[in-house]
């Protein structure tokens, strides 16, 4: 028999994993995964983002992929959509950079300026 506490734990834990089917209001982290992105190393980036989501139980964060947006020279590209905020585009992302983006931007709300496309193009 499960106690009420155990049921609540199951509820919380499962919700984190399946909430993406209902909740469309949280943060979306989108990784460019077309041929160009994959060739430039998007897969390790995606895996490190997913690890962070798992580790920190970020139930309201959705990790998605997208195709080529035409800026292949900047791949791997990661876009962060926060509700009510402008989209932020990060370029030439690595697994280590992704970690910082997750910790500072996604979790604390501080954009990592030096990785953004604006900084790269200066």
């Amino acid at each position: 028999m499960k106690s009420l506490k155990e049921l609540e734990e199951i509820r919380k834990k499962t919700l984190e994993t399946i909430n993406i089917r209902k909740d469309r209001t949280g943060t979306r982290v989108v990784v460019g995964m077309a041929t160009c992105g994959i060739a430039a190393g998007a897969r390790p980036v995606l895996m490190s983002i997913m690890d962070e989501v798992k580790k920190n139980n970020l139930a309201d964060v959705v990790v998605a992929q997208t195709g080529c947006i035409g800026m292949c020279r900047f791949e791997p590209i990661v876009e962060v959509y926060k509700p009510g905020e402008e989209k932020v585009t990060y370029v030439k992302v690595t697994a280590a950079k992704a970690l910082r983006i997750m910790n500072e931007h996604v979790m604390q709300g501080k954009v990592v300026d030096e990785y953004t496309i604006g900084a790269e193009e200066k």
Partner: peptide
């Protein structure tokens, strides 16, 4: 169409058995 009906945990996740808990307690 939202949950896997053969997995009780997924039902519980979307507030399943919360009403029963409220009623019984």
């Amino acid at each position: 169409g939202v949950i896997n009906p053969e997995n009780i945990d997924e039902y519980i996740a979307f507030d399943g058995y919360k009403a029963l808990e409220k009623v019984l307690t």
